[in-house]
């Protein structure tokens, strides 16, 4: 378990290093950090990796769902950042709103199902709700 955690943390470390490198570049390029596209992409990359790490390590259904929310937020940050810096029109902003709404709808369905699971199994631990298998 510890080994998998460490291996999962490895991309995180490299992402942090990347942030520092980008920060160093920014000071050279003289543009403020918040006005550079790469800054947003790095943050969204970190969010994505955090989301995937949450999904892979957590056994509680709610935490796994939170992991998916992190990935969706990473996508949203990308959409908004590309819309701001890419001069692509408003499609990205629109998509970001759509994603926020979809995430809310998905959570409503998800919580209903998780409640049912708690009622039937007395637990929302994904390793305990595993009656169907080969």
């Amino acid at each position: 378990m510890l080994a998998t955690l460490k291996s999962l943390a490895a991309p995180l470390n490299s992402a942090v290093v990347q942030v520092e490198e980008v920060a160093a570049d920014a000071s050279v390029a003289a543009a403020p950090f918040v006005e550079r596209l790469d800054a947003y992409l790095v943050v969204s990359g970190i969010l994505f990796v955090l989301g995937v790490a949450t999904i892979l390590t957590r056994r509680n259904a709610l935490y796994v769902l939170m992991g998916t929310e992190l990935i969706l937020n990473a996508a949203n940050l990308n959409f908004v950042a590309f819309a701001r810096f890419g001069d692509y029109g408003l499609d990205g902003q629109l998509m970001a709103l759509v994603v926020v709404m979809l995430a809310a709808a998905e959570m409503a369905v998800a919580l209903a199902i998780v409640l049912r699971i708690f009622h039937d199994f007395g637990s929302i631990d994904l390793t305990r709700t595993d009656g169907l298998r080969d």
Binding site: T68, I71, V109, I113, I117, H119, D120, F121, L126
Partner: peptide, 20 residues
Amino acid sequence: SEAALKYLIYGAVASAIMTF
């Protein structure tokens, strides 16, 4: 119920990754 949970968990993850 278990089928619903499994479908939900895998599906939510897949669609989040697809959105990214």
